[in-house]
Design a protein around this nucleic acid. Structure first.
Lengths: 230, 230
DNA sequence: AAATTGCACATTGTCGACAATCGACATTAA
DNA sequence: TTAATGTCGATTGTCGACAATGTGCAATTT
């Protein structure tokens, strides 16, 4: 008997609004009214309120007490802030994975990588995103740090939002990007966790660069990048 | 008239419960009932519910849907998880501070450092904690990354909780600890952000070590699993 | 006309009541 | 005795109504 996980009402509402923000149907700065959402979905305001708190955790909305909810802004500064944190935390995750991952984890990561590469060569963006999500999720499990996992999972929707904004250009760079994952995968097996961390950090910096150039033109040169390759 | 920031009811409740958990008056694993808290404080369950979500963000309680809230566990694994994340994020913050801090920031950091050192030589633990909180808060501002700041601030109560558990032993090591902050402060001024990051990471690793030894003794030498229940 | 004040409306915050769900216990059957 | 099942109390989830607060407009004053 399939004990299907029943989705909460707040989770459903969260997903609903989440998608709209990621797809930019709800614009940055736009007000979100509890009563309006509640009526649209035929529920009371209580679960809507809870959904808005979850969306705040996901950094998709900003809540101001007694003033309400707005769709979170997104600027070049936001993108830098996001990827700097992303780099630090996924770097840590990579180091932990090389230290702790077992056979099963490595096999699962390999399977996810295949999915990523298949999607990349087929230029299937949806499948590609599914793949990197799986890769990340398996990595979280293997890193064996639930606190880290939860922080990163809370941040994932913001990641998707930024990626979505750059989706048109991304179709061309899918295979190049998949290359990062292969490299990461191979280094996760190495005995040197520093190299694995470096690979993930390089990926994060690349994502940041792509997003910034994509959205705000290429107004930033890498003066002193410090990218030491040995 | 001082336009003091008015504290929300949920914030008040959060602080109330927060203190109890940090002081270990509410034990790990203990159930927290919405109705009970609501009655004790003479409010309805709505603000209590919201307070519990905030406490979940602070990692002081764990919420399980349709089952309720429990005081978060605290084990050697939890401590390792916490300080690994702490190290990665404060390391990032340190690097950013060396890059971005202005004159005012550095002056404020210096003032906070003085407070820390004064409290340390007076062996005033409360003042010492105030000092390091200020130091961290100013650092957050100087690092100029609100996302990072918010994540770290959400984690602060967990930090306090772990430190509180080791408070008795800490009185002796206050000055040694203050030394870390002086070193960090001096390196934040150096042009080399890598060294500043390294100093902060060393501090984090030391905190982890102290907490682990303090709470779990040195029982973890040849025991790879560490699962010794009596 | 510009600034200030007061008022009306829109929106969030809080409340008490009811519904849905979970866990423990007792009852029954093998 | 032990395992399965039904029932009951306790607890969380949801609801609609009311209270408190903030916002924008209009009237008033200078």
């Amino acid at each position: 008997m399939q004990r299907k996980r029943i989705e909460n009402i707040p989770e459903t509402i969260t997903r609903e609004i989440s998608e709209k923000i990621i797809r930019n149907e709800l614009k940055p700065g736009e007000r979100i009214y509890e009563a309006k959402i509640a009526e649209e979905l035929g529920v009371s305001r209580s679960p809507v309120r809870e959904a808005l708190r979850i969306l705040e955790k996901n950094r998709l909305v900003e809540l101001i007490p007694r003033k309400g909810a707005r769709v979170a802004e997104i600027s070049s500064a936001h993108i830098e802030w996001f990827y700097d944190v992303f780099e630090a935390l996924y770097g840590l995750a990579a180091r932990k994975v090389t230290e702790k991952a077992g056979e099963q984890d490595r096999a699962d990561l390999g399977a996810a990588l295949e999915k990523i590469e298949a999607a990349a060569s087929a230029k299937d963006v949806e499948k590609y995103y599914e793949g990197i999500f799986e890769f990340a999720a398996i990595g979280m499990r293997a890193a064996a740090n639930p606190l880290l996992a939860q922080i990163l999972m809370d941040l994932w929707p913001s990641n998707r939002r930024i990626q979505y904004a750059t989706i048109s250009r991304r179709k061309d760079t899918l295979e190049e990007n998949a290359g990062f994952f292969r490299k990461i995968y191979e280094l996760l097996d190495s005995p040197d966790e520093v190299e694995a961390e470096a690979a993930v950090r390089a990926y994060a910096r690349n994502e940041k660069q792509v997003a910034l150039e994509m959205i705000y033109g290429k107004k930033r040169e890498n003066d002193r990048d410090g990218n030491t390759k040995s």
